[in-house]
Write a protein that binds this DNA or RNA. Sequence first.
DNA 1: TTCCGTTACGGAACCATTTCCGCATCTTCG
DNA 2: CGAAGATGCGGAAATGGTTCCGTAACGGAA
Lengths: 378, 378
Amino acid sequence: MRVGAKSITIRDVAHEAMVGVGTVSRVLNSGAHVSRATTERVEAAIRRLGFRPNAQARRLLRPHSEIVCFLLSNRDFPHTFHARILQGVENYARSIRQHVIFAAVHYDAGTSPERIPLPPILQERGMVDGLILAGTVYANFLHRIQQMEIPFVAFGNNVMKYEGQRNFDQVSYDAFPGEREATLYTIGQGHRLIAFGGDVSYPWMRVRNEAYLAAMRERNLNPIAFTAPKPALSNLEYGDWLASRALARKPRPTAMIAGNDEVAFGFWRSLRRRGLRIPEDMSLVGFDDREEATLMDPPLTTVRVRKEEVGQACMKMLLERLHHPSMAYSERLLATELVVRETVKGLSRSSATGSAEKERRLPARRKTTANVELPAEG
Amino acid sequence: MRVGAKSITIRDVAHEAMVGVGTVSRVLNSGAHVSRATTERVEAAIRRLGFRPNAQARRLLRPHSEIVCFLLSNRDFPHTFHARILQGVENYARSIRQHVIFAAVHYDAGTSPERIPLPPILQERGMVDGLILAGTVYANFLHRIQQMEIPFVAFGNNVMKYEGQRNFDQVSYDAFPGEREATLYTIGQGHRLIAFGGDVSYPWMRVRNEAYLAAMRERNLNPIAFTAPKPALSNLEYGDWLASRALARKPRPTAMIAGNDEVAFGFWRSLRRRGLRIPEDMSLVGFDDREEATLMDPPLTTVRVRKEEVGQACMKMLLERLHHPSMAYSERLLATELVVRETVKGLSRSSATGSAEKERRLPARRKTTANVELPAEG
DNA sequence: TTCCGTTACGGAACCATTTCCGCATCTTCG
DNA sequence: CGAAGATGCGGAAATGGTTCCGTAACGGAA
């Protein structure tokens, strides 16, 4: 705060404690090779002078800055999804005494890599040890990052990559098991006419659709897929559109597997407005398990993605990469899981066992009650 | 990436371009006092060698690091509120080439300041220029921060401060105008029996309650306040409790002003489950304008807090402080505003503006002991 | 021609730390 | 008792930039 005041350096401390600067440095860091008495004298001097080491000078000599950058591209936080990932990153980072710079970047899929603006700090060397990429990653952005020669880990689900791309580290969630489980569960509840709704021009929607298709195929059921791309529509509006399509279909589906929670929400609202109820008139399953899923009435049965764990895994993987720079690139896949709440109606058993199904009882997931919340924000 | 490889320094560039290090430095920074030809030669050398200046060495000599720390205390992000503030901070920071470290801290209101754990980076000097405090700030935490002698700005609404505390910079939103407007609007829609519901043991709820009371007084109406502290309850459950209290009351209120959107949500859900509809059977107003407010069906009429602007104002204020260290401390108050959606029903004008009720209530002044539930209507 | 101000440029000094080297002392063991 | 190894400690070197100082060239004014 005091402007003109020369700040206290390690030399001042050394003088005050009547030792050499090397000794002070040793006390500050390892503490090894310094006698107990000297250590105490130095510590007393530090306290007396209110000395705090200069962060920049320290890092100038160290191989690592212990700072990573969480780089969010082309996203805002209105969807809590990425905020939760950031939280997971910070949480784990803190536990291992690392720090996180949060930066956002906005770019166009068409611009050449060199023109994509990056935080000034990334142009320099040595400030951040590595990068965690979240948000949509197109090829040009990926190139830009790779040119920087900074170790990085990407949250893989929003990377526009070709099948099985493995030339960088990534953490993704695997929508397949969760979505398959959800579909099988719905079948198990006696449904036969089960629709899937989601714009498959998004790669992440495609996986969910495939899981749905696989589950239907397993049970010898005919899929009913509403997967048309609707670029102009928001998720909510997509849910709206889905409702009109589903209701118009003959025979009408008894259940809808929505591509994500927001689509499910739009669907649910649309039905309500037509005087139809969920799950009485139609069952509904979401994907993501956003907070709002528990707020819906009745609470939404959905597939959970553990967002904090994704963040934690990213941070962990980046650290491994930093420690072992020549390690082979890998992708870590986190499982997803069904969360049974109350939007899938159990149909009567009579017509249920059409196919020769063993009625494989899925391990009944815990029914989540209303989440316990911290005191409200302002 | 390459481990053993000595990194390229400014001296290498100087040698390559056949100039002195000073010249390279000048090219890197201002560009002044260097001829066009030399500049080009240096830039070519930089490109050729792939030189990137060392961030730490640079900052060792500079007065500012151009990095600030967004410190979130005792919060997670399940409520998007603080995520939005962070977004506002980063957004503005980016526009002025500053960087943001995101860090979280968890502490107890009871622990002594010295024992509150802070990110290691804050213990050092020179890494962050300043701090933005978000989340609940108790006295001990405030002391801890002030001891650090780092310039800071606090998001004021969650600071547990005594009335009018002004010994640090803060940015707050003023709930009063928005909540007053909301109440007056509800009155304007023909409502007379309007209840307020919110746990006033939280200071921020108290302001909202006062705004409600003021508006009711202005129109000579009797307040119906459900303000009892319910420490064990979540917001959602509080809304639940509110519903039972409101419905039990005779005469039954026709509108509920809920302390925040989440309470409103709990209230709404509780009513739905009893077969009552909003706004047909009861009108409802929230506070905060969370994303979910538009998802509700019908969408919630509520009071908007501009969260990104709060963040932006924090960053702006911190920057002013950094430029003018001896500037007087100040609090910046951002207005809140009513957002009319569809949860307040317009009542018939017949009974409206009943000037008959002149009932002078006893002045419900700013209560110090707010944990008293106000007597139900006089 | 001389003088002065401006521009261009090289390089030493400096920033605040860590690390390494050298030396003294102490301990251990054959 | 002496050699070897460990411990304690001071201080120089190193880290990679920026800044400042000195100098040279040049142009315009007197």
